[in-house]
């Protein structure tokens, strides 16, 4: 719309007009994002929440470390020491204790805030590991699956093992592993890590198989384009969008599963601040001191909701297939060709 005219860019180009040219170029790139965000306020809310949550988590985690180095003593961003017992027993939320305290006088707000970096890192990290491992295996299983070759055998093995893991409800397997390894943060991370990758194999393989037989890939191969180039230019390129969308949605699922292991009492130990552990510890206080349970619960809820809203919107922006359905839903098939094309561009 507001693209720079010739005179703005050429004849009397001042730094300001050049900048405006750049800005409008940037706006061109961002336009689909802006449009979807405007058309879909929920995505915008999710996006803002994700930014706020991630920044807070980063600050809570990093500031003590940096201040330790710079000032010689850690500066905590939490108002109280999350493990510091005080004499303010079982207080209701007030200005002094934003989310109240528990029976030991621990400040709930500090505990919820202290748990944020751990839970978020677990969500991002475990889902990321699953993305890399499962995605890699899925790529192999989908791309080199010619029967009676080494690749074919490897693919078959990968698929069989994946089938076995997919047959477990992942929470049950994670519980079994976590219980076997004993209570602790490390073991429960390992438990989720070991059970989380299989779905990515299936997802990636499905996408690879779909892309592999598209006419343009066949055409590229017929034209003598090397396999490596096909893999990077066509196959990987098409994998990024669906995997990224699934990954974003998955972060929330990992956080929930991890906190569930803590909740049933075989995950994170009670003295570590973790949302699931907190709900478990305060469960019986729901009626008498509801803030103790609802605060960590709300923390999980908001975090997961933020990533779901964002991922849901990301799908509308990135995934061409569902973008088409979005356009179809908004603008019917009766639209003249240009309209549908323009709306998709």
């Amino acid at each position: 719309m507001a693209s720079a005219t010739d005179s703005e860019l050429g004849v009397d180009a001042t730094p300001w007009t050049l900048l405006r040219g750049k800005a409008s170029h940037l706006r061109e790139i961002l336009r689909p994002f802006i449009r979807v965000l405007r058309a879909n306020p929920l995505t915008l809310i999710g996006f803002i929440l994700v930014v706020i949550i991630s920044t807070t988590a980063l600050l809570v985690a990093i500031v003590p470390v940096i201040s330790q180095v710079v000032l010689g003593h850690p500066v905590l961003l939490t108002p109280y020491d999350p493990n510091g017992i005080s004499t303010d027993y079982s207080q209701a939320p007030s200005l002094k204790h934003l989310l109240g305290t528990d029976k030991l006088g621990l400040d709930i707000f500090s505990r919820v805030l202290a748990a944020l970096p751990l839970d978020l890192a677990i969500g991002v990290g475990i889902a990321g590991f699953a993305l890399l491992l499962g995605g890699g295996l899925g790529l192999v299983a989908g791309y080199w699956d010619k029967p009676r070759t080494l690749g074919g055998v490897i693919s078959a093995v990968i698929l069989r093992v994946t089938d076995v893991f997919l047959a477990f409800p992942s929470l049950v397997l994670a519980l079994a592993i976590a219980a076997s390894l004993g209570r602790g943060t490390g073991p429960s991370i390992l438990a989720v890590l070991l059970t989380w990758w299989p779905y990515y194999v299936r997802l990636t393989r499905g996408e690879v198989l779909a892309v592999k037989h598209r006419p343009y890939v066949v055409a590229a191969r017929a034209a003598g384009v090397s396999e490596v180039r096909i893999l990077f230019r066509h196959v990987l390129r098409n994998l990024i969008e669906p995997l990224l969308v699934y990954y974003t949605l998955d972060i929330g699922t990992v956080i929930i599963t991890f906190s569930t292991i803590s909740f049933v009492g075989i995950g994170v130990p009670l003295d570590v601040s973790e949302w699931g552990t907190m709900v478990e510890a305060y469960e019986q206080l729901l009626l008498t001191h509801p803030w103790t349970v609802l605060a960590p619960g709300a923390a999980i809820f908001i975090t997961v909701l933020a990533f779901s809203l964002f991922g849901d919107g990301l799908r509308d922006i990135l995934d061409p297939r569902s973008r088409r359905t979005l356009v179809q839903a908004v603008a019917a098939t009766t639209l003249p060709g240009q309209v549908a094309g323009a709306a998709e561009a």
Binding site: V330, A331, A332, T334, L335, P336, G337, Q338
Partner: peptide, 22 residues
């Protein structure tokens, strides 16, 4: 031709156009 609006006309008469966006 394609994009001349003939399909829109066909759909508009029995009110088959989705409103919005039409």
């Amino acid at each position: 031709e394609t994009g001349s609006g003939k399909s829109t006309l066909a759909h508009a008469i029995p009110r088959l156009l989705p409103e919005p966006p039409a």
